[in-house]
Design a binder for these strands. Structure first.
Lengths: 250, 250
DNA sequence: CACTACTGCGTAAGTTATACGCAGAAGTAG
DNA sequence: CTACTTCTGCGTATAACTTACGCAGTAGTG
């Protein structure tokens, strides 16, 4: 009755039956993944080719395919490895500060390794570390009166906002580096480009936005928009909790 | 003082100086983009190669490079074309229903052309239709007492949730089609896989989630999690508006 | 009519993932 | 100890892919 596991998950969870028959393997999945991460960190995701990773290990290209079914699988494993374990849950932490920490930590990880957001997602989160983070998020929300499926939805919402923000800022940073400036300047460049391209006649609402001059001044605090979105979601969850607990024991 | 526009933006906005010197162009950027969209819609993003698109038009591969600087540029233009114009703003619509419509329409577009979410984003939203959608979103929020930059943050938050959900469901659907089942069944498969892989001992919070049996039953309404996230954000914005208007003229 | 700037596109180079299959290594059964 | 099985590393080869380069020809301009 047990269906076969998809191969990528089998290797990710280390569930490959390893009968001690043939010659001892010269490589390890961990070493391959680590080499891939190293290449991606040093030269970007574009530099990650099977031959490049193999060269890093002093092995032949095709050797990698004994450990990984396809390049996609390697990329998924690289991302999972780079996400890493979630930190231990601070005792006595409230759900709100916990979720904020969850999101900010996640963002910091994506910032430290910008190549992560360039890996095309092709499967729902089922790799070990992603599952661990999901568990971590659920644990943060354990004390709330939310239904279990609502906790899951909350985590996905927060993750979505975080990833989206990471992608956006990574884009802007990349564009900045391409033209040899800093990310701050690139933010301003973005505003300038928007002002140059978006005719206020055709796009009146954008005209009003530009008229405030906000996009012409660098943000005093970093990640303002990100924090704004997070705060809104937290407030919304608070509203749901209040509504549910109204006139009820909670 | 006017810096040169990046080439991808120049072509996207149709700002290429076209001196009527040489031979009349045999192709159009629009036709190329349309052909690319057609190929992607019919056979998936993986089938979109420069030669394939050129063949669709009866032209040679290299001809496309007279209109597009690189394949990435073509992909960006394809996405922008597929997003399309935002609908006209329904008169008398409140900000909440407006934002919900914004998000649902966006999701429907990404669902109708699943290849869109597979195009790696490499630049912030500066293409014409994306700008138009941004303007549309700002217009929806025009009646609220939010600051202009808060309106922008709101739109980005909602867009992030929407895109994230589109990617996730596209992944699950793709995995379903790969194994010859339906998306609904794949959702259940996801729950089953999670239950098989995530040891409740190691991941207690996930254990509690699985124990509710929610993942074992198909959702009665579609996009439950997506709608949950949206509702939370809307509630959060309502909270902000209420707080700002407390004891104040609004 | 000469000139110029532009278009279409043939050719070719350089990468890429990965299918196939063989030589040899390490266990296992007799 | 010997035969057999099963696995590993990896050389070779294939079929894609993007795109640099440059040439022949065309439509306006002076």
């Amino acid at each position: 009755m047990e269906k076969e596991l998809p191969s990528n998950l089998a290797v990710a969870w280390g569930l490959r039956a390893r009968p001690g028959k043939g010659p001892r393997p010269g490589l390890t999945l961990d070493r391959i993944v680590a080499a891939g991460v190293q290449v991606a960190a040093a030269e970007g995701l574009g530099a990650v080719s099977m031959s490049r990773v193999a060269a890093e290990l002093g092995a032949a290209t095709m050797s990698l395919y004994r450990y990984v079914a396809a390049k996609n699988e390697l990329l998924d494993l690289m991302v999972d490895a780079a996400v890493g374990h979630p930190p231990p849950l601070p005792p006595g932490e409230g759900w709100r500060e916990g979720m904020l920490r969850f999101a900010r930590t996640h963002l910091a990880i994506l910032r430290r390794q910008p190549w992560m957001v360039r890996v095309p997602i092709t499967s729902p989160p089922l790799t070990p570390n992603h599952v661990a983070w999901m568990d971590h998020g659920l644990a943060v929300l354990a004390g709330t009166p939310l239904e279990e499926h609502e906790k899951l939805s909350t985590i996905m919402t927060v993750s979505g906002i975080t990833r989206n923000w990471a992608v956006l800022t990574a884009d802007i940073t990349a564009a900045a580096q391409a033209s040899g400036t800093t990310a701050d300047e690139a933010m301003l460049t973005y505003g300038q480009l928007l002002g140059r391209l978006a005719d206020p006649q055709r796009f009146p609402a954008i005209g009003r936005l530009l008229a405030t001059g906000i996009l012409d001044v660098p943000d005093e605090t970093p990640d303002t928009d990100f924090e704004f979105g997070l705060a809104r979601v937290m407030d919304g969850i608070q509203t749901l909790i209040d509504r549910r607990c109204a006139g009820d024991t909670c």
